[in-house]
Write a protein that binds this DNA or RNA. Structure first.
Lengths: 210, 210
DNA sequence: TACGGCCCATCTGTATGCAATACTGCGAAC
DNA sequence: GTTCGCAGTATTGCATACAGATGGGCCGTA
């Protein structure tokens, strides 16, 4: 028997397809087609779909299966502050002791971001690593679970987040300020910048969405 | 076809069984037995189990099925503040306009709680209604989803919450103070009491858990 | 031509079947 | 006496099969 259930891999794969639009917003998910395409049967596929519906990345329409929720600017406006507050909470609940080793490591990742920006690479993967590192010491697994469930929803709207180099540079600066605040032991300042970082991302997103 | 998928009912039923201990903490879930007992096939049952595992009320052990997580005092200590902060957040994000009609209704439910306390009834159902009402105007469905997913986890530890009449009376008073603060438009005070209400519940829980 | 009802293909929701792994009990060896 | 190994059973994970609902097109009628 597989040591990793099929549904886990399927959740990952389907998440990717929702994020990159191969499963289009508003479209219904045809279980038979998708199962054939992925080379699995409908059973583990449905299990994955149900998991994704629980996280809000799909919605279940009783009798009509699953569908990808349409894009909704309101939803983005609610998701960004939500993730912001959740991350800030995770930060507040990380003990100063655990936090001590982080700033240097965070700045190292921020350096990577700066280099990626110079090369014109995609920053989102590095940005993700930075935030994962920031939260890695939080002792509340349930909060981390909620964050993990919510971020993919947000990523649907994030496609053009780092589109502008100006915003990217600004964002890297914010990341560095967060690390600096942590070094000073100034947790409120760190959370404040963190929340602002997310909210600003939303603002730039709104600009592109016109 | 049923307008409501079987798995929804199953999720509800299994949640109940986990909360009342019919599915004991630490025990494995036998899919065949449980399916027979519930009069359904394994397919929708497994779908329900997966949904519950996503919410953290069960854990999935690859190759070994699902099991009810053991009780863990640490978990309770992390869940209560989490729900407290999430509810406070929901409150902060509810517009004052929407909030205006709430205090009277909240106090009405608080009256019910007081009456139930006098009669010696169980308060948890009424308490749940009070909190649901408090959050009912929050415009962020994702936050509400997270709260809804997290509260059942907490309820596992809540059995003896309202055990002491003294604490129950105190809690009702806190509920009234929250409504009063809302009437005054003093949102920070309302959140503060709300958070304290949850944290105190945890403190009393800790006392009984020895 | 527009509208409403019926029929059929398609798809979901549920049940059952099958293969491979994990647990249990017993026996043997140290 | 304890531990290791093995065989049989139980149980999971996945695949397939079946029943009922859904949606769309076609025809008839106003």
């Amino acid at each position: 028997m597989a040591r990793t259930p099929l549904r886990s891999d399927l959740i990952e794969e389907i998440t990717t397809r929702v994020l990159d639009g191969r499963l289009a917003a508003g479209a219904r998910v045809n279980e038979v087609h998708l199962a054939r395409e992925l080379g699995v049967s409908r059973t583990p596929l449905r299990e994955a779909l149900i998991g994704l519906a629980d996280r809000g990345l799909l919605v279940s329409a009783p009798g009509r299966g699953f569908l990808v929720p349409p894009f909704d600017p309101d939803e983005a406006r609610r998701l960004y502050p939500l993730v912001a507050e959740l991350e800030a909470l995770a930060l507040r609940w990380t003990s100063p002791l655990e936090l001590a080793g982080l700033p240097d490591a965070l700045d190292a990742v921020a350096d990577e971001m700066a280099m990626a920006l110079d090369r014109g690479d995609d920053l989102s993967e590095v940005d993700e690593r930075w935030h994962a590192l920031l939260l890695s010491r939080c002792p509340n697994p349930h909060l981390l679970r909620l964050i993990g469930q919510t971020k993919p929803l947000l990523k649907r709207y994030e496609s053009c987040y780092f589109g502008g180099a100006a915003r990217a540079g600004e964002s890297i600066g914010e990341h560095r300020r967060i690390a600096a605040a942590l070094r000073d032991g100034d947790l409120p300042a760190a959370s404040a910048v963190l929340v602002r970082n997310w909210v600003k991302a939303l603002a730039y997103l709104g600009k592109d969405e016109r």
